[in-house]
Simulated assay, not measured.
Amino acid sequence: MHLTNRVALRNQLFYATLKRVCVFLLICLPFKGFSQSWQAGGFLGISNYSGDLVQQRVDLKYTRYSIGAFVKRDINRYLTLRAGLTYGRIAGADSTNRDTLLLARNLSFRSPVFEAQLAAEINFLDLDVKHFTPYVFGGVALFSFYPTTKDARGNTVNLRPLSTEGQGMAEYPTRKQYNLRQFSIPFGAGIKILITDNWIAGFEIGLRKTFTDYLDDVSLTYVDQATLLRSKGPTAVEVAYRGDEVNPAHAVPGTYPADGTIRGSAKYKDWYAFTGFTLSYRFGGGGRNVWGRQKASSCPRF
């Protein structure tokens, strides 16, 4: 009988403890989820390009503007997920290079870039405690581009339809037409500063690794002039080779390169970058109420 009472008492204690744990989870888990916060904000900065038409890694002479918007979800103090849309412009030209061969090639381009991005940020510090934190980020993006150039008369010419390197032409079956929508891998680093409980400012440098070499419409070799003329017309020939537009010291007028002459380099893919300032508003959590005061925990004590 004594043993039976001990077993019954042990069972009672077990079920009482289990009940308390369940109550604790039911009460505290919603508060844990509520401590996560959302952010909505904007980005304003510059865009740059790296590819066949710049001699150095990045030519700051062709820096253009970029602008964007984003939403973020703070999973915890060290992990933030984000989604964003960014618009920028990129450009490059041989005319500002120092290499004689590049000057003689005399190609140029400009293109809009529209990007949709999903990424994760790793914060090194607790922003609410330190009021600032460095961070790194990485993710995946879908972007679109559309390279154009100015002809000798100053008219804007869309490059892709002209197949300047034989893309999509029957005479060059291995050269497929490049897609104007591509995936890229965005990554970089930045710093966030907590201005108030709800406003967060930041600065970010973000690189984009692409899987195309045609942001600038330059990658491989020249194609046969007569074939290009027959298939795409005189404008295609005019913008495919522009050495006859430069100073005769750098090129001999009218000497269109032979089929197979190097025009670009496919060894490295093109890159683009967005660098700038961010400003976001935090709401719906972060351990604070809508007036910015710290929320009190309602978790029971045992």
Rank of each mutant, 00 (worst) to 15 (best):
L279C: 09
A266L: 09
Y178H: 11
R153L: 13
D244H: 13
R208K: 15
P112N: 12
P300N: 12
A152C: 02
G190H: 15
L29S: 08
D270L: 13
G254K: 15
R282G: 05
Y172D: 02
T148A: 06
P173S: 04
T96D: 12
L162H: 13
K176C: 05
K295H: 07
D244N: 14
Q12M: 11
A93F: 00
V54T: 05
G190T: 15
A83E: 04
M169V: 10
K295I: 15
P234S: 15
P112W: 14
R153V: 01
A236W: 02
G42H: 07
G33W: 01
S184F: 05
V129A: 01
H131V: 03
D216C: 03
A116E: 00
R82N: 11
T148E: 11
R110Y: 10
N123S: 10
V23W: 04
F14N: 06
K19H: 08
N76V: 05
P234Y: 14
L180V: 12
L101T: 15
Q182G: 07
Q56H: 14
L103F: 15
A170K: 15
F187S: 05
G243T: 06
A170Y: 13
L229C: 02
F283D: 13
A170I: 10
G188I: 07
V290R: 10
A170P: 14
H250V: 08
G188R: 10
K72I: 09
A120C: 06
S184V: 05
A258E: 02
Q117R: 15
V290W: 05
T149H: 06
A119H: 00
Y241S: 12
E204Q: 13
I75D: 04
N123P: 13
Y15K: 08
L101V: 13
K267N: 08
R160Q: 12
A236E: 00
L127M: 09
I200V: 15
N247C: 12
S144P: 00
P173N: 03
L44W: 08
A201H: 07
G260Q: 04
K269L: 04
V237Q: 11
L81D: 01
Q182L: 03
T164N: 04
V157T: 04
W291V: 05
I185R: 14
I46Y: 02
A226T: 11
L127A: 01
C299F: 01
C28S: 06
S265W: 03
G243V: 02
I191P: 13
I200A: 12
K130H: 07
G233A: 11
